[in-house]
Write a protein that binds this DNA or RNA. Structure first.
Lengths: 103, 103
DNA sequence: CACGTCGTTCGACGAGTGTCGAACCACACG
DNA sequence: CGTGTGGTTCGACACTCGTCGAACGACGTG
């Protein structure tokens, strides 16, 4: 298990958009943004199996959206907010914003 | 052929992100943003067949990213910039921005 | 009318994706 | 050491997606 995470300069816009273009992953990113820090994978109630959850976290990590820090048997996940803002300014804010007409 | 286009209020973020998360479609959107108006589908050099091109334009239209106006045998396509800005402020700008480290 | 052009639609195909259970690994704790 | 827990990996499966050639439809033009 090599835990691949792309360099900030290597972040690919289509890969990021693709990663964010899934309801479950978008939810993960939103919760991650709300908590403003780290969370372990297990604390997400996503309504899918462990295997599927692991898959989504992998997609997010390999797209460069999240950073994963292993610690013991847990994995602490956090948003790569600064990196994303540096590479694609405004993107994360736009995606996370409460959409005006959605309420 | 009913030419479905979602209402502005019905724009779905994941659908939009999914539509933008493809290199060819992202290119179309970029060129569409550059030309600041309408273009016919045929004026895009995408390196794919007519069928594939038609498919991509359909995805963009059904996600609400573009508006299509038929005129004779042609189809005039334009970006739904105002609608997207109203629904997801900043998203389009972020996606279209020249990425800092990309140069 | 005949022909060419622009674009859609229709299979078809291969590649990728989301999903799961089951097996597995690594660690923590009795 | 045995057991449990948090996560990953491994098929497997169904489904979607991007792609194409071919056929088709609609419109303009000669």
């Amino acid at each position: 298990m090599e835990l691949f995470e792309p360099e900030t300069a290597d972040l690919d816009l289509t890969a990021v958009l693709q990663a964010l273009g899934d309801p479950i992953r978008l939810r993960i990113v939103r919760e991650l943004a709300d908590c403003e820090g780290e969370r372990t994978c297990g604390t997400f109630e996503l309504g899918v199996s462990k295997a599927t959850r692991s898959h989504h976290f992998k997609v997010l990590r390999e797209a460069g959206v999240t950073r994963t820090r292993p610690e013991g048997t847990h994995r602490h996940v956090r948003l790569r907010r600064e990196d994303l803002d540096a590479r694609f300014p405004g993107l994360l804010d736009a995606v996370l914003a409460r959409t005006p007409a959605a309420r």
